[in-house]
């Protein structure tokens, strides 16, 4: 069956095929007359080679290549992911930086406002204190003045009494005279 197929194949190829005729029964072989033994050995040797190569050569080589390609792809994917992560981190940091800057400005503004307020408060307080002190001083001065006036008046009364006593020691008792003078003096004081 196979041989007839081979013969058909050969026959188709050799359009002018005197070789076949020559090779028929004679031991001589034409260039186009396939030898069965060689075909047998070709099948055997090629089959063995195919089996061994595909099992022990091509499979490990191709799997090594695929492993390397996979590793390369993985590395590329990883690098891409890393790059995306880095970009994300950068954006985040930028945002944080912006936020920090805004915060700082706010803090500065607040500080400035607080300082302003504190200064104003202090100024106000100082002014009030000054005012109070002034008032107190005024009051004290007034009180001292009143005290001094009263003292002076008392001194004057005493002096007057002493003077008057020297003048009229004899006829007038102290109490009646003192009352009289006091009455007089107070009338002066009220006027």
């Amino acid at each position: 069956m196979r041989s007839s197929l081979i013969r058909a194949v050969v026959l188709l190829s050799a359009t002018a095929a005197p070789a076949l005729a020559a090779g028929g029964d004679a031991p001589a072989r034409g260039l186009l007359d396939p030898a069965g033994g060689l075909m047998f050995w070709t099948v055997l040797v090629f089959g063995t080679t195919f089996f061994i190569l595909s099992k022990f050569a091509f499979k490990p080589i191709l799997s090594a290549v695929e492993g390397r390609e996979q590793a390369l792809r993985d590395a590329m994917d990883e690098a891409k992911a890393d790059r995306e992560l880095a970009a994300q981190l950068l954006a985040e940091q930028k945002q944080q930086l912006d936020a920090a800057r805004t915060d700082a400005q706010k803090i500065i503004a607040d500080g400035r406002a607080t300082a302003e307020k504190m200064r104003n408060d202090l100024l106000e307080q100082t002014r009030t204190q000054q005012h109070d002190m002034l008032e107190r001083a005024k009051r004290d001065i007034e009180a001292e003045k009143q005290g001094a006036i009263a003292e002076l008046r008392r001194e004057a009364v005493d002096l007057a009494i002493a003077g008057a006593g020297k003048v009229i020691e004899k006829n007038l008792d102290d109490a009646a005279n003192r009352a009289l003078v006091d009455k007089y003096l107070s009338s002066i004081g009220t006027k």
Binding site: R2, S3, G36
Partner: peptide, 19 residues
């Protein structure tokens, strides 16, 4: 024999070359 096709498994020069 496969049909009338004789197969002689004796090694030839080209068989050795294949090996």
């Amino acid at each position: 024999h496969i049909g009338s096709f004789e197969v002689d498994t004796s090694p030839t020069k080209l068989t050795v070359m294949l090996w």
